[in-house]
């Protein structure tokens, strides 16, 4: 077990790198110029490499484009083609306005936003507090507690035991069940703790001499220095909450409390139609497939908006560890 601990800690070490990012970037740029001993690459190799990379990028982006185009195409085009569009004959937001005027989608959207915001804040508070306490050298019980936490890595609780815990606490069919079971992620905890440990001990010492208690040191000295790592860990938590459909399936019976991804799972995986829901309102003017794709886009857009910010903080330290989790 202690082997495991050391490995994890070693991985968390280089986390203080966001601060050094500008330096590294210039270093890489300099390194990307061809050194004198390197042959000039043959043109054909360059073309082949470029073609493979282009193909890779296209394979990633085309599905997004097809879904976007389908969601923006007029109903008749989708019905004629059988359910897809590569280029809308005319651009229309009909699907989006239909979907957003349906109560099922808007309510699910609100549940998702609420769970993501609440869950992320709660997770961040718990993670930062625990990480700070475990980062201070010589804290009472620090080592055994860390061991006990890392041990959970080997035996993650399944969903049946988690269901039973939630049931015992009376939390089945409440919004709590959508975020409490995953409050603290061990990997995120190790990353934040590693960052706190990288802050020079003199700063803690100075704060102590100035009469600041631990809580005050955390709030006024440590947190302002840790904005980057907290941002990236918060984004990882937020993406996790936003993307989860399974907790909605497993712990929520009342369909009106489903988050967006769980509702979407009904459309995608069980073939549940939007059409019936729409015909009740007597407004079937848009193709069901286009509306489904509009829901898919609505569930994807927040991730696309947040992605550039996550990417800004991609550094070697955070990511080599991320793979492990």
């Amino acid at each position: 077990m202690s082997d495991l601990v050391e490995t994890r800690e070693a991985q968390a070490e280089p986390v203080d790198e966001p601060a050094r990012t500008p330096g590294r970037r210039t270093a890489r740029k300099a390194g990307s110029e061809r050194p004198a001993w390197k042959e000039k690459p043959r043109a054909i190799t360059q073309v082949a490499k470029g073609a493979v990379l282009l193909l890779t990028v296209a394979m990633v982006l085309i599905p997004f484009w097809v879904v976007l185009a389908t969601s923006l195409a007029p109903g008749q085009q989708i019905i004629d083609s059988g359910g897809w569009a590569l280029w809308p004959e005319s651009w229309t937001l009909d699907s989006y306005s239909k979907v957003l005027s349906s109560e099922v989608t808007t309510r699910a959207l609100m549940v998702s936003v609420g769970v993501t915001v609440t869950g992320t804040l709660f997770s961040l508070v718990c993670t930062v507090m625990l990480a700070y306490a475990l980062a201070r050298p010589g804290v009472v019980g620090g080592k055994p507690v860390m061991l006990v936490i890392l041990f959970t890595f080997l035996f993650p609780p399944g969903f049946i035991p988690t269901y039973l815990v939630l049931d015992t606490l009376g939390l089945i069919d409440t919004y709590w069940s959508l975020f409490l079971p995953v409050t603290v992620n061990v990997f995120n905890l190790v990353v934040v703790r590693g960052f706190f440990q990288g802050i020079p001990e003199e700063l803690y010492e100075a704060a102590r001499l100035d009469g600041a208690g631990e809580l005050r040191t955390l709030l006024t000295i440590v947190l302002p220095l840790s904005k980057a790592v907290i941002a990236v860990v918060g984004l990882f938590y937020a993406v996790g909450y936003w993307n989860d459909f399974f907790r909605g399936v497993m712990y929520i019976n009342d369909t009106s409390m489903f988050p967006l991804q769980t509702v979407l799972r009904g459309y995608v995986s069980r073939g549940e139609g939007l059409a019936s829901e729409m015909s009740v309102e007597g407004t079937v003017t848009q193709a069901p497939q286009a509306m489904k794709m509009a829901v898919v886009m609505i569930a994807t857009i927040p991730i696309l908006c947040v992605y550039p910010f996550i990417q800004r903080y991609f550094t070697k330290g955070v990511l080599t560890g991320a793979i492990k989790s």
Partner: peptide, 10 residues
């Protein structure tokens, strides 16, 4: 960063 539900839909 895209959820499995959406990957399957795509």
């Amino acid at each position: 960063f895209i959820s499995w539900v959406i990957v399957v839909a795509l």
